[in-house]
């Protein structure tokens, strides 16, 4: 009893203070981005205050201009489209792949081989696939948003298969057998019984897939370069020259690019952190 009190009671004040001070390293770059995004180029003097002091007026002009220059809404739309499409297909396809392969692995060697074959794809760096894929997608006529989604679905398959197959190990077979006795087909059993049971894993897969897709630069950069379409990060890269030395405009644009995921994080923080941890630890 006494021991317990000793452990729960004391708040470690020095550590709390140190950790609060440490937050400066997180907030400083973001603070800098906000301040510069609101300023006018004439306010940017060469000393520290020129960049870090509050702007004279808080005007949204830079943001409006940045939206126009970088074609913000279209880039945002493309990013959303790619992310949502990839997540939906990943959950549908990787989930059922995890079921078919995971359930057959113990009984049949060929499925064990298929499992190892796909999971070992995790070690293939994009750099080696990049050049052949540029050619291949062009030949197939899918050097566009559709092609990028197909590639994402393939790239995240090893990780997601690992997660789904791992999760299924803890789901007893008895659950499906009951349905089988009732005469339901395997296909129907999956969608009505197994798919809902895997909900926690769907959340993890959704978070991991969405974050990788949303922030990815390289795949759309090499595959979609001919379409004139941008994702949010890609727009920052492609309009870099247009920003020139107008850092205020550039930072307004960077901030706009960061805003959607920051807002999303604000509302789904718990799910995001849990998802990421589940994915990494399993």
């Amino acid at each position: 009893m006494i021991k317990k009190e000793k452990h729960e009671g004391k708040v470690n004040v020095p550590v709390t203070i140190l950790l609060i001070l440490g937050c400066v390293t997180i907030f400083f770059p973001l603070y800098m981005a906000v301040i510069i995004a609101f300023k006018q180029p004439s306010e940017m003097t060469n000393d520290i205050m020129g960049a870090l002091a509050f702007p004279k007026t808080w005007s949204l002009d830079n943001f409006a201009e940045a939206m126009r220059v970088t074609d913000f809404w279209n880039s945002l739309g493309n990013s959303l489209l790619l992310t949502v499409a990839t997540v939906v297909v990943a959950i549908a396809l990787h989930g059922i792949a995890g079921y078919a392969i995971g359930r057959s692995m113990a009984k049949k060697k060929i499925y064990n081989f298929v499992y190892l074959y796909i999971v070992s794809g995790m070690f293939v760096p994009f750099a080696i696939l990049m050049m052949p894929l540029v050619k291949q997608t062009a030949q197939l006529g899918i050097a566009n948003r559709f092609g990028v989604v197909v590639l994402y679905v393939v790239f995240y398959m090893p990780m997601n298969l690992l997660l789904y197959a791992g999760y299924l190990k803890n789901i007893p077979l008895a659950l499906e057998e009951a349905a089988r006795v009732d005469g339901a087909s395997t296909w129907k059993t999956y969608w009505s019984i197994i798919f809902p049971v895997m909900k926690p894993m769907h959340a993890t897969v959704a978070v991991l897939t969405a974050m990788s897709t949303w922030n990815d630069v390289m795949t759309p950069l090499v595959i979609m370069s001919g379409t004139g379409k941008n994702t949010l990060p890609l727009a920052q890269l492609n309009f870099q020259t247009q920003f020139g030395t107008n850092y205020n405009l550039a930072f307004a644009s960077y901030l706009l690019a960061l805003l959607p995921i920051l807002l999303f994080y604000l509302f789904c923080q718990k799910q995001i952190i849990n998802g990421v941890v589940n994915g990494a630890v399993k």
């Binding site: 770059p29 973001l30 949010l232 850092y247 995001i272």
Partner: peptide
């Protein structure tokens, strides 16, 4: 505090790179 220290992980590497470049 945990929520705050996790923020850098959700931000895209390219845009973070541009901010740090400045």
């Amino acid at each position: 505090l945990r929520g705050i220290y996790f923020i850098p992980n959700i931000l895209g590497g390219l845009v973070v790179g541009y901010i740090f470049s400045f």
